[in-house]
Design a protein around this nucleic acid. Sequence first.
DNA 1: ATATTGGTGTGATATTTATCACATTTTTTT
DNA 2: AAAAAAATGTGATAAATATCACACCAATAT
Lengths: 226, 226
Amino acid sequence: MDTNLCHLCEYKCDAATRLTVEELDMLNSSCARVNFKPGEIVVKQNALSTNVVYIKTGLVKMHVTDGTKEKVMKIVKAPSYLCLPSNFSDRVNNFSATALEETSVCFFDLTVFRNFIYTNGDFAYQIITDLSTSELKNSHVLNNNTQKNTMGRIATLLLYFSKEVYSNSTFVLPVRRQELGEIAGTTRESASRILSELHNEKIIDIDGKKIIILNDKLLEQISLNG
Amino acid sequence: MDTNLCHLCEYKCDAATRLTVEELDMLNSSCARVNFKPGEIVVKQNALSTNVVYIKTGLVKMHVTDGTKEKVMKIVKAPSYLCLPSNFSDRVNNFSATALEETSVCFFDLTVFRNFIYTNGDFAYQIITDLSTSELKNSHVLNNNTQKNTMGRIATLLLYFSKEVYSNSTFVLPVRRQELGEIAGTTRESASRILSELHNEKIIDIDGKKIIILNDKLLEQISLNG
DNA sequence: ATATTGGTGTGATATTTATCACATTTTTTT
DNA sequence: AAAAAAATGTGATAAATATCACACCAATAT
């Protein structure tokens, strides 16, 4: 049996569960499935945004560059759409997306997807809910990045990986120190130094990219900032 | 003639122009129109988000507080919806909104509004476009706030007021220095100092809250950051 | 009109963070 | 396995920004 059919997909997003079997078959015939390895580019900034990009499994970072500096806007965990705002506004990708782990992606035809919004109110409503949730998450990122000191931001990031991504107090960082800094809005050196500090204070254990959170309470405290 | 009818409204948003006369009449009967003076609170953080809030004219700031610090997330200029993401996700206002200038607001019943999404694909599509555009704008704010130094952020803000809000190289700041700092993610003192510096370098002229941009090119340059 | 309050500008200083430099470790290539 | 390249940790220093302090001005209340 070919499990590569949209209506049999076990990674359907909330919106897709609102589609009829016929609609899912239409979606299916416009769907290209691609797997990416860590480091591979899924979406390229400034390219035309002609496909809806949906990650079924895996983890990616969304990032922008202005030519010199590289800023990681956010980490996106599957299942999730990657570029809906670009799809529906200026049709140009505002960010690049790079896989941090083995990631499986579906590319859908934008026209097919767009028609569902017109013809299936349930689907449209769910997309609106998704966009809304995503925008609020972004706001928290903004708040996190502008109101906290560097250690608070790194702490928040470690907790995010531990709780949201890996659901484990032990995990392997999917990024190197340089990128950790870019995500937290600081430098490689500062990121490294702060990990050391957290280690010295016995809040985390470090072995290369492997992190063990020893004192969750305290890390939460630091994350909320001081 | 009663011009206080939605279908006669001259400040209709893009989405509302997709509604039929009948739908606009439904909207109208669920609409409460309120005017706010500068400093008055339009929407309160943590209150239930049971209304769609649409600003027809005026200017507001969206802000959050964690109990101690006050962070201005963004300035929103009419015409615009204020809280769609809160309306459609957790139904609790994630931000407060405070009028910066005389602002006229329509409060719509969320249920009526939500029904239009199910029944009018054109309307739904436009809301999705609006949310998308708004999310991308937020991303730029994030980028602006995390990648630029303080002077760059203040310069960006002055250019925003000049170009986006007042369409004039001379304008009256709708906020005091304290708030200018909060928007730019810095302190009152730093904001004040940077205005002085820009003045000393003959890039702007200052008379209290009145600002004249003298060297637009250079201010753009600073905004892009150095 | 005077007193009180809130807003502002600016110096002095402390704190935070970035930058530079380089030794060390880890990973990749040949 | 050896060599080369990339990533990391950490000290020393510089730069940016916040904090504290206080004088001054403007608006508002008494």
